[in-house]
Simulated scan of single mutants.
Amino acid sequence: MDLQNLVNNVKSVSLSVAEKFTPVLKESKFRETGVLTPEEFVTAGDNLVHHCPTWSWARASDPSRVRSFLPENKQYLITRNVPCHKRCRQMEYDQSQEKILTSMEVGAEEGFAGDEDGGWVDTHHYNQETGSSQALELGQEMNEDDDGEEEALDLDDLVESGGLEDPDPNRFVAASNKPTSEVERPRTYDLHICYDKYYQVPRLYLVGYDENRRPLSVEQTYEDFSADHANKTITVESHTSLDCDMPTVHPCKHAEMMKRLLDQYAESGKELGVHEYLLLFLKFVQAVIPTIEYDYTRAIQL
């Protein structure tokens, strides 16, 4: 753990230096490469705030941290007190809950062309307590390779399976019929979405609190992240607008994943506008933090 933290810190410092020499993106390339200009980030953020009033814009902690390429009153997005009723270990695989769906079945249900070969496993199909855990299963695709670099998440199944449109009202809802001793006390999280100038994409930061509103340690926070991402895809780095370090979903593969999602939607006849970018972004990040109930966009049809 200490060695990994050291590596993360070195990477964070290196990227901070590199960002200073990275020019601000001026030309829109979100359809071609999945990246955003600062202006497009603000447009997408305004749309998120409009559809989900739990999100709001925030200012930098002090003038020295104001990023000149963003409006002073729109430095980053924040939502507070997001519930987290379960730890990720409570979503472990149980064969008795799974149902194998063919690609043809999934495609027919979601309106996408199916494939007779292969299929998709809904690991919690018969579990009304958690509903489908497809986001967690997809998150496991984002394992690290031998040199420590992240592999791109294969998102073809995400669109085919309807993972971006979750109609299940039972998903991530804590069961009320369990004895109190079996139910974890709820934690809460404050989530921040910043603009990463180096990678030219949104970056998600998180800070967690226990049931008494005491800040969680880094080790406690990792309990709420998919095991394949804790301390790997999730790193602890300096916040862009605040004088503190926070766990963050590393953005090195964000553009690639967003480009693939945008292409999948375009192929299905649902071309998305740049203002919808953050709605889509929040949905695929659910693979990394499957038990934090931040995605209030599930009812929004993209």
Rank of each mutant, 00 (worst) to 15 (best):
Y189D: 10
A175S: 03
I193F: 04
K178Q: 12
E182I: 05
E149W: 10
G162I: 03
E149A: 13
D145S: 07
D196L: 03
L191A: 08
D157H: 05
D147E: 11
S176K: 12
L164P: 10
T188H: 08
D157T: 15
V173G: 01
E151S: 15
L164R: 02
D154Y: 00
E182W: 09
R185I: 05
G148S: 10
P167T: 12
S161V: 15
E151D: 14
L155E: 09
A175C: 08
N170D: 06
Y195T: 02
S181I: 14
L164H: 12
D196E: 15
D156S: 10
L153M: 15
D146M: 07
L158E: 12
H192Q: 10
D168L: 00
N170F: 00
N177L: 05
E144M: 12
D166H: 02
E151I: 11
L191Q: 02
P186T: 09
P169M: 01
E184V: 08
G148P: 03
L153G: 11
P167W: 08
R171D: 03
L164D: 12
D196M: 03
L155Y: 00
E151T: 05
A152Q: 08
R171F: 03
E184D: 11
D168M: 08
N170Q: 07
P186I: 07
P167F: 13
V173P: 04
E182C: 09
F172P: 01
R187G: 01
P186Y: 09
P169E: 01
D146I: 01
A152D: 08
C194Q: 09
D196R: 01
S181P: 15
P186W: 02
A174E: 06
V159M: 07
K178N: 12
D146Y: 14
D190T: 04
P179W: 07
V173Q: 00
E165D: 04
G163C: 04
K178V: 00
S181Y: 11
P167V: 04
F172K: 09
Y195L: 02
I193S: 05
S161I: 13
G162D: 07
P186C: 03
D168K: 06
E149P: 02
G163A: 03
G163K: 01
V173H: 00
E160Y: 13
N177D: 14
P167H: 11
D154W: 06
I193V: 05
P179K: 06
A175H: 03
S161F: 12
S181H: 10
D154S: 04
